[in-house]
Design a protein around this nucleic acid. Structure first.
Lengths: 337, 337
DNA sequence: GCAAGCAGTCGAAGGGTGAGAGTGCCAGCC
DNA sequence: GGCTGGCACTCTCACCCTTCGACTGCTTGC
């Protein structure tokens, strides 16, 4: 454990470095903070902090910069109360009072809000489809052999699948299939659909009807990719906070793989963290990044998660409070609907 | 007009600069191409090319780099046949033989394909909703006061809007509204819906039904943002081809505004171009970028457009052929469905 | 009209220097 | 024992200077 003065010094180094991105020297710390000791004393403590792995020196005659361990201690022990500024709170309030309607739209706008609050990249992961119940299923014939299966879920999202039939099919047949499907799966969850007995489902139906039912159910069991459930905003802000194009490009490559992003956030939450610093993210390409993440709760259950991704030298307190506030408000807003 | 030798020299400079990103000197041109004159002669011609605005010199003793006018001439007059490599054609073929089903998914995958072919950012703009006809409309009650309006369009896409009703409403009422709406707007286009007479639409319906119909129609008239109809991929590739973080960040800022992207592409196409170079894009922030764009045709009509965005020193021939091939195949694939 | 040669220009690269920021350590003081 | 002032040392950065090399433009001759 660090004694109080060392902790204060560490805090000073971290905040200063976050602000300026320059190595911080003992003189700066001694003069600019609530420390009332000389720079020589600070130097001694900084040497200790370095020996214990909280700080590092780019080269001999430079100041210190925080290590991941240093940031971690800062986040865990030294984190300020982290309140949002007045402008930001106002922005959040007005956003959530204005927003309504489409969930996808709302989540996408939320990612914009979050990035505009923090000036980092924001990630919003939508509710898992699996837990929602099916409110309606409808077959719509688009052309002679193409049928669209539209499933409306209780959380307002929609699953759709295109079926290509082997033979031209009359509307009557499609209607029959529609009715049977409705009675079968309305009220169930998508997970429930996956455990349906296909043969029992088509029992007693004529061949042409049952083939549609089979095809539709098979489609529904198959892929609900998380794909369209991830919303990313503020990549330009994120880019601006790094100084190597190489780094930016690698981070963008990660963000383009939505599945990776989702599991990244889940992974962090699973480890019980709300902040992952550098390599803690579990991804080598994000060694210079940190992630701040929080789940949001809809109707008492964790529905999804939101997070921001920025440089390791991010404003953790601001990011933490922004993420917390937005997750909270988002959960409330979605619960009402 | 340029005589043949000057044109050859210009081509050599452009291709060399695209390859190396270094200013090209007269010696390089004289030795490395089908030019059989001395470097001194090349120098004279290059001086002329510079005077006429095709080339520029970063500083006195450097080689030349192409100006926008130079690239423009290169693209218009000197463009090679531009065939896709074997690997790339194979990639396109296998993509379109594999792909099927959801349009959104397909368009999103297409943007990935295009960026992987060209190594630049790829933009895919989905079909305009306005021209599609309505195949079905359905009201789904999510909770006592929340109703989801689901509209299925003939091209397989879905519009959905959430209605928040002032009072709890029975299913029976909703069903009535559903029926009336179906008979009113199925077969119409969304544009048609916008010109419906609201009062005539609710004629003879009881108050509680007509209020739902009014609300639903008003919603449908209102916002179909292009929003979810733009798919962008390959931003990491794009980033890697610039060397200033600043530039990358500005470009990302543009790409984040989907509406801007759509009108950017439309604007280029409207001017009858398939390539916009530097400032020709009409956006100051894209001064270092070029855009290659092509419309795709579904069932004989222009449905949307695809494009790539890269540095002005992009491989125009490859980009042009990739965009052309993909637009073509995409149109065909969507026409079948 | 082309080629050869030559002088001139300018940036990039390399080396040397001085300033500045910072460190570590030691001796002394409270 | 812990803190401080002082001092020697280190290493980067900015600057200057020089050299090198890659070009160009121009002039002259074929």
């Amino acid at each position: 454990m660090l004694d109080e003065r060392k902790a204060t010094i560490l805090r000073a180094v971290v905040t200063e470095y976050i602000e300026t991105a320059q190595p911080v020297g003992s003189g700066h710390v001694a003069s600019s903070s609530e420390i009332n000791v000389s720079s020589a004393t600070v130097r001694n403590d900084m040497a200790t902090l370095e020996a214990e792995g909280y700080l590092a020196q780019p080269h001999t005659s430079a100041g210190r910069i925080p290590t991941e361990k240093g940031y971690r201690f800062f986040v865990d022990q030294l984190g300020g109360p982290g309140k949002l500024g007045a402008t930001e709170s106002q922005q959040v309030r007005s956003f959530f009072s204005r927003t309504h309607g489409e969930m996808e739209q709302m989540l996408s706008d939320t990612s914009r809000l979050l990035s505009s609050l923090t000036h980092y990249a924001a990630v919003v992961v939508g509710p898992q489809l699996e837990v929602a119940t099916i409110k309606s299923i409808q077959l719509v014939s688009l052309s002679a052999r193409i049928v669209l299966v539209v499933v409306v879920l209780s959380n307002g999202s929609i699953e759709k699948h295109t079926l290509e039939l082997a033979a031209d099919t009359e509307d009557l047949v499609i209607n029959c299939a529609d009715l049977r499907l409705s009675s079968l799966i309305v009220g169930q969850t998508l997970a429930g659909v996956s455990s349906l007995d296909l043969n029992a489902a088509v029992l007693g139906e004529p061949e042409d009807v049952s083939i549609i039912i089979r095809t539709a159910l098979t489609e529904l069991r198959g892929g609900h990719r998380h794909d369209d459930q991830v919303f990313i905003g503020g990549t330009s802000d994120m880019a601006a906070s790094f100084d190597a194009v190489r780094t930016v490009s690698e981070i963008l490559r990660i963000l383009e793989q939505q599945l990776v992003v989702v599991s990244l956030l889940e992974d962090v939450l699973d480890r019980g963290l709300s902040v992952a610093i550098g390599r803690e993210t579990g991804n080598e390409a994000l060694a210079d990044c940190s992630i701040v993440v929080a789940p949001y709760i809809v109707d008492g259950e964790t529905a999804g998660s939101i997070g921001v991704l920025g440089p390791t030298r991010m404003h953790y307190d601001q990011a933490l409070s922004a993420v917390a506030v937005v997750a909270n408000r988002l959960g409330h807003t979605l619960s009402e609907g």
